[in-house]
Each structure stands twice: as structure tokens, then as C-alpha cells.
Design a protein around this nucleic acid. Sequence first.
DNA 1: AATCAATAATTGATATATCAACAATTATTT
DNA 2: AAATAATTGTTGATATATCAATTATTGATT
Lengths: 142, 142
Amino acid sequence: MEKLNDTLLYTLDKCFRTYNQFAQRNVRKAGYDITIDQWLILKSVSENPDITQNDISKIVFKDNASITRIIQLLISANYLVRETHPSDRRRVNLTLTESGKKITMDVNEIAVQNRTTALENINEETVHQMKSLLQQIIENCK
Amino acid sequence: MEKLNDTLLYTLDKCFRTYNQFAQRNVRKAGYDITIDQWLILKSVSENPDITQNDISKIVFKDNASITRIIQLLISANYLVRETHPSDRRRVNLTLTESGKKITMDVNEIAVQNRTTALENINEETVHQMKSLLQQIIENCK
DNA sequence: AATCAATAATTGATATATCAACAATTATTT
DNA sequence: AAATAATTGTTGATATATCAATTATTGATT
């Protein structure tokens, strides 16, 4: 039985978790009481104002149920407003509040900085290569 | 504000989740009622019989509290036995039961197969490159 | 030996992940 | 139009993630 930590996917796991913790720590250190996951949802609403929760779940790669619950928190934190969609009453209409807009932009700056730090000393070409590799793995897992 | 899904770390996230779901699905399809995370813990105990929970948490890159709780489940599923450590009573002594040993090996086979599938059409050299890149990112996040 | 610091593990609180079951609404079929 | 299917979202149950606080024990200091 091969050792646990020899595999690429172990390193992938570790990298993912390390980066997540790093990013979350920095957001908190900057004084924002929001998780990266919550921010990702705010961001996708801000980028696509007419988005459905189902679409969000695909974009951020999470379960529908998780999205519902994260959105409930964002509403009670007063970052989002939910109304029923005018033309399709199954859907919900999500709108960012003013403080929702503000925190989305503020945290975005931190996120950009996080990525810069995380990718320090790694050149564009390598990043590009890696992306297509990851894409290949994603395809293989379907 | 740049688009969500352009970044390397978004792809990393997606890849990680896709692989995890893929792997979990296959384990379940094979009839084993165990999560990948639980299996990882069984595996690290089997590889290091005298391991502490703290060490496990470092190896599988999770919080101490998570490890405690996952181990509680593994004990009630009768895959693990917990006793106090003879020479240090703060520690717990973890031992795999027979069925624990069996499932660890069985799921290992599936895991090997999963990795093979996930890494299909990707050559050794590229995998190697990617590992060191991920390692670099991990370093950058410290 | 008594005190203090460090280590190992647990517990509480809250957030998220996942699956399954469900309700409401809309779209399609007959 | 009525029946059926598909879509959108919610809820329940359970597992895991994370932080903070806590207990028990051991190690180090004085």
C-alpha cells in the first residue's frame, strides 16, 4: 500500500486547504466577518444580477442546499435581499444591499492580494499549463 | 473586478471538489459505507500504528476537532478501537479492528483506481512538475 | 514539591457539504 | 383542460470544518 502523501491528489488537497485557510485568515485579519464562500456568492450575484441559486451552485461548485443556507446567512447579515422573481415565481431575485456591495469590493481587493502572494515566483506560462492540467483531471472525473 | 472563474485557484478548487466527489461516488458504488476522509484516517493509523491524533490531523490536513469526531464515528462503526496510551495517558492508542483492516485495504484498491482514472492521459513528467508547483503555492501561503 | 508551561484530546458553537425527500411553480404531453 | 414531467428552491439528517475554550496529563522551572 503506497504512502499517503506521495500522490498528486494529496498535494492538491493540501494546497487547496492551505490556500483556503490562508485566504480566510487574511480576510478576517482585515476585519471582515465573512467567509470566502459567502463572498464568492456575493461576487457571483454582483457579476450576474439575474442569476438563479441553481446557477450559483454550479459556478461556485457547491450543493443547492448549501447555497440556500449561505444565502440565508447573507440576508440576515444584511448583505443580500431576496424577493420572488417577477416572471417566474419558483425563482428568487437576489440583490446586493449597499453594505453588500461594499464588502464584495473590499474583500475582492484582499482576494486579489491573496492570489498574488500565493502565486509569487510562478510564471504565467506555468500557471497556464497547470490550469489546463487541472481541467484535464476534471474531465477525467466525469 | 475580474471574473470569478478565470483564476488558477478557482480551477484548483473545482478540480479538488470534482475529484473528491468522483472518488466518493466510486467508493459508495462499490458498496462501502465510508467517506474518503474516514478512510484516510484508517489508512494513516495502519501506516503508523503508534500515531497520535495530532499527527493524524497534520497528515490529513484537518483540524484536531474534526479528527476527534471522525474517530468517534470510526469507533462506533467498529473499524477502530481506542485505548489510553500505556506510557502517556494524555494520548489515545488507536488500533484497527479486523473489519477496519479489511475496509482500509478494500477501499485502497478503489482509491488507486480512482487516481489512475483521474490522471489518465497525463504523463509522469507533468505530474511531477505540477506537484512542485503546488508545493510552491503551499510555501507561499505560509 | 509546588508552580507554571506545554501537549493531547475533547467539547461547544456555528458554518458548510451532502444526500434525500419535499413543495411550489412552470412546461410539456396527451 | 388534466395529467405528467421538469425546474427551482427549501428542509431534515448527518458528517465535516473551524475557532475558541476546557480538561487531563506531562514536562520544565524554581
